[in-house]
Amino acid sequence: MTAQVSRRGAMALGLGAGIAATLGGTRIAFASKMDEAIAAFTGGAETKTGLVTVIAPEIAENGNTVPIEIAVDSAMEGDDMVEEVLVLADGNPNPGVATFKFSPLSAEATASTRVRLAQTQNITAIARMKDGSFHTDTRAVKVTIGGCGG
């Protein structure tokens, strides 16, 4: 028997490939925006892990309000001070989520908020310390219902 592809089969194949291509394309576009956002914040400096913790649910049922917490292990005194924390989500149309600025009056560099997530993706936080070093952490969140569009 010859491997004959029916008209309907061909359509389905083409459609599938098309969707795969668009999905792949947008993913790459998001990723490059993400890299741009990180580069703009760090100026290309190296980021270390360990000090920053992103606390987020493993599975978010509703992407419209996902509670997240960013905690940076710092004494908040002298040079051991967190100046800014940039929060990014790599699967949203725009990666930026928020930038938190801390001060000597913030006893601990922790902040919580609720965010929108369009799809299953990673949340990244980058902290800029007073001594000029950058620290980062990433956490994946599975989103059941996306939080964009309507």
Binding site: N64, T65, A111, S112, V115
Partner: peptide, 17 residues
């Protein structure tokens, strides 16, 4: 404390610090 907020923050924004 200060936060620069992007559209990715949910409706009725909540902040804790």
């Amino acid at each position: 404390f200060e936060a620069a907020v992007e559209p990715a923050v949910s409706a009725n924004p909540y902040f804790e610090f």
